[in-house]
């Protein structure tokens, strides 16, 4: 590790000596300038602009009115539905993803299943947006294969039960298609971190498999599980394209509302739009902070 001061001293102490070595301290900072300029212009400033705008009225004066306006019933309900869908798809993704990962990692299934599942999860976790929406319309839409087969083979009309692919449950089931694989991808290394010897040690000490899971495996996995669930939450909370492709603008979730606001100022208040964005950042930010904290804890254990 080179100390900044030493590096600084070199060119001044021996000014006549040609600079043969790598550029030293003042020049060393130049190496990261492109990155910081980029991050500032295309990530930080745009975000900060919106955050600042959320606290301003159209004339640029400070106000908290925009945040108060977020409490309007249609905005609150948009946030609420977004949170519900994200929570449902995160919990569902976590549960089924954990089950799948555990099935493949921990038990004596044929060896080819694991790489197959991992590769498929890599694909499916990236198969989101409009193509995913189309796929689920073709599956569970009114004319979808599953809907049609259920009614022609079993006489079961899915849509008469109140199910609609354009609804809360439809969106949640669709989101699970990338949430479950994401959970599998993140949780598998954590499951691999469970040492075989822990199970064996617990057995020789008289523990049943259930006691092993309750007292050792689950507590060790818990931070990863919870952390990944929060990441899944943020993941679906910010999703636009899948929802838009499935429902158009019919479902009142916060990303769709913001999309409509950007396109046509449906809120009739630019700064309220900024506040809407700020609300999203706060929610995904909180879940990511929680993720990072829990992740650090789980890695400390598995060290």
């Amino acid at each position: 590790m080179e100390q900044p001061l030493e590096a600084l001293a070199l060119p001044t102490a021996q000014p006549s000596r040609p600079l043969r070595r790598l550029p030293t301290m003042p020049l060393a900072w130049l190496g990261v300038v492109p990155f910081f300029v980029f991050a500032l212009m295309f990530l930080l400033l745009p975000t900060l602009f919106l955050i600042a705008g959320a606290f301003q009225d159209p004339d640029g004066h400070f106000t908290l009115q925009n945040l108060r306006d977020l409490l309007a019933p249609n905005i609150i309900s948009a946030y609420w539905i977004s949170i519900e869908i994200s929570a449902a798809s995160a919990l569902g993704g976590a549960f089924f993803g954990a089950l799948l990962a555990a099935a493949v990692v921990l038990n004596g299934l044929p060896g080819w299943l694991r790489p197959t599942l991992m590769t498929f999860s890599g694909v499916a976790s990236n198969f989101a947006g409009l193509p995913l929406a189309f796929a689920f319309l073709a599956t569970l839409g009114r004319m979808g294969l599953v809907t049609v087969l259920l009614s022609s083979l079993l006489g079961f009309n899915l849509y008469r039960t109140g199910f609609n692919i354009l609804s809360f449950w439809g969106l949640t089931i669709t989101y699970l298609y990338f949430q479950i694989p994401l959970m599998v991808l993140i949780l598998t290394p954590a499951l691999d971190g469970l040492k075989k010897e822990w199970r064996e040690a617990s057995q020789t000490l008289g523990a049943t498999p259930w006691q092993y899971w309750r007292m050792i495996a689950f507590p060790v996995l818990w931070p990863s599980l919870l952390g990944t669930t929060l990441l899944l939450f943020a993941n679906s909370f910010g999703a636009v394209a899948t929802a838009y492709g499935l429902t158009g603008s019919t479902l009142n979730i916060v990303t769709i509302l913001l999309y409509a606001q950007i396109r046509g100022d449906v809120l009739h208040n630019q700064n309220l739009g900024y506040a809407l964005a700020l609300g999203m950042i706060v929610i995904t930010g909180l879940s990511n902070v929680a993720y990072i904290v829990l992740r650090t804890r789980s890695e400390r254990w598995l060290k």
Partner: peptide, 18 residues
């Protein structure tokens, strides 16, 4: 194994990390 009343020590220690 959990009914045999054996104690076992492993090369990797295998202490429960939590």
């Amino acid at each position: 194994p959990n009914q045999r009343k054996v104690g076992m020590v492993f090369q990797s220690y295998a202490l429960f990390p939590n």
